[in-house]
Design a protein around this nucleic acid. Structure first.
Length: 480
RNA sequence: GGCGGGGUAGCCAAGUGGUAAGGCAGGGGACUGCAAAUCCCCCAUUCACGGGUUCGAUUCCCGUCCCCGCCUCCA
């Protein structure tokens, strides 16, 4: 059994076959740092993080590169509006991006290259294309000659001849062909620019990824990720630039994530229906947010709505509740992984199939059901059940945290810290409550319990007295 | 118009040529003083619609309808 990935270029699931056995080199198209990340960006983050974590879990030596586009029209525009330097905008939102991704539990890239740090590499690539007559300079602009690259359109399955739009072609007067796209743009007044053989200017968008990916990962690296909306023209152009210049294969596998929707529309800055990712994570918590992202296969659309986040919150609650109960019931018993093995197999089978996260989460649900079933016996001291329950809980945390990144252990640790702080108060309240219950004064007992519940403390009465704990996530805001 | 993805129970969502995972919500029961947590049971004879291939299709093919994405910046 091994990993199969859907490859956009081949339009099919194909076995993951890295350039070098056991090594995975991944490049992800990162943000244009012009504003804060929204929930749609988070999906890219979680999907690529999942891919990366899973490959690492399966023993691959992973190198993960995600670029930052720090020079672009929109950055310049924003800078102008705020009357600051474009670099300041770029720095501000790069920091914001990194902070938000960290909050979402996304592992930082091994390398985070910046476009403005790779001007030479880009210019070199452009020059090679000019030398090969596959690009041409006009008044300080340099365009890629699309019809010089016979494979153009292979990623997005477009026929060059079907593509003439005619209408809103930028720089139509200077292009040989409306399809040609800019790799270098001549400097305009009051815009950042860099010297080049074709005059001062700045790079086009597509060239940076071709140049930076090849620089940091080399020829024919393993996986290139990005949003489905980048397939054309961005990724198509990346391929054209690289392969026209060097021949060979730019990338072995193309993995694209589907869009996040708000109602029936794509969540997008240009539509203006974006939800701040940082706020969403703050409101729902990492675990529930990620479980929501993982509730649909990564290529299908996913709708952002309260109901779905609430579902994810319930799932997270169920997982942490099981781990807590299992640990309490098992005590120091050595875990037995035998029972857990079948669930691990199911999880891996699901993930091996193009990262089928919904099926993988389903496997964890079955693990939890299996564990809950043994909880009673474990609590009564059945050593076999205790060992099995401990094994199941350990596996749940291993897969949930290491691979899915849903922060089970961290959530429990947060709760434990809170519990420690409030323990004296809670204990004394529970003693009063126990007295009240002994006197069958249930009104008082229930009032105390309600008070604790309101404070986020769950009280559960059992045969051996009351057990209590802090809820692991802030309760989600209910807007109904 | 071109290219691509999709239409599965109240909702979300897997999946397979042989008669539908999982979750959420809901109903019933056990446990509880009542709860909570947990357990047991129930909850799509049916997979947009119409044809076709097949012993048999939700799964393959053709057509129709609807939704979404890309074709301009976009994760």
């Amino acid at each position: 059994m091994s990993l199969v990935l859907y490859d956009t270029l081949r339009r099919d699931k194909v076995p993951f076959s890295p350039r070098t056995e056991g090594v995975a080199a991944i490049y992800v198209c990162g943000p244009t740092v012009q504003s804060e990340a929204h929930v749609g960006h988070g999906r890219l983050g979680v999907v690529t993080d999942l891919l990366r974590r899973y490959l690492a879990y399966r023993g691959y030596d992973v190198t993960f590169v995600q670029n930052v586009t720090d020079i672009d029209d929109k950055i310049i525009l924003r800078a102008r509006r705020e009357q600051v330097d474009p670099a300041e905008i770029a720095t501000r939102y790069t920091r914001a991006w990194n902070r938000t991704m960290e909050a979402l539990g996304i592992l930082p890239p091994d390398i985070q290259p910046f476009a403005t740090g790779h001007l030479l590499e880009m210019q070199q690539l452009i020059q090679e294309l000019i030398d090969q007559d596959k690009a041409y300079a006009v008044d300080g602009d340099v365009f890629f000659r699309v019809r010089s690259f016979p494979d153009y359109g292979k990623l997005s399955r477009r026929q060059v001849d079907d593509m003439q739009q005619g209408e809103d072609v930028v720089d139509a007067d200077r292009k040989e062909d409306p399809l040609d796209f800019a790799m270098w743009k001549t400097a305009k007044p009051d815009e950042p620019s860099w010297p080049s053989p074709w005059g001062d200017g700045r790079p086009g968008w597509h060239i940076e990824c071709s140049a930076m990916a090849a620089k940091h990962l080399g020829e024919g690296f393993d996986i290139h990720c990005g949003g489905l909306d980048l397939v054309f023209p961005h990724h198509e152009n990346e391929i054209a630039q690289h392969e026209a210049a060097h021949g060979g294969t730019f990338v072995r596998h193309w993995v694209h994530n589907g869009m996040v929707r708000m109602g029936d529309d794509k969540m997008s800055k240009s539509i203006g229906n974006v939800v701040s990712l940082e706020e969403a994570v703050g409101l729902w918590g990492v675990g529930p947010m990620r479980l929501w992202y993982l509730s649909a296969q990564h290529r299908t659309p996913l709708t952002f709505e309260t109901e779905r986040l609430r579902d994810a919150h319930s799932v997270h609650q169920r997982f942490t509740t099981f781990v807590r109960s299992a640990r309490a019931a098992a005590g120091e018993t050595e875990p037995d992984a035998t029972v857990a093995q079948t669930h691990r197999d199911a999880f891996i089978a699901a993930m091996d199939d193009d990262l089928n996260a919904p099926a993988a989460v389903a496997a964890l649900h079955e693990l939890v059901s299996d564990g809950n079933d043994r909880l009673g016996r474990a609590s009564s001291g059945d050593a076999t059940a205790q060992a099995e329950v401990a094994g199941l809980a350990a596996l749940l945390v291993e897969l949930g945290d290491e691979v899915l990144g849903i922060g089970l252990d961290a959530a429990l640790a947060d709760a434990a810290a809170l519990e420690q702080r409030v323990a004296p108060v809670v204990q004394s309240l529970l003693e009063s409550r126990a007295k009240a219950r002994a006197d069958r004064d249930f009104a008082t007992a229930d009032a105390i319990r309600d008070q604790l519940t309101a404070a986020g403390i769950v009280v559960e009465d059992g045969p051996s007295g009351a057990r209590w704990y802090a809820t692991v996530q802030a309760p989600p805001a209910l807007d109904d």
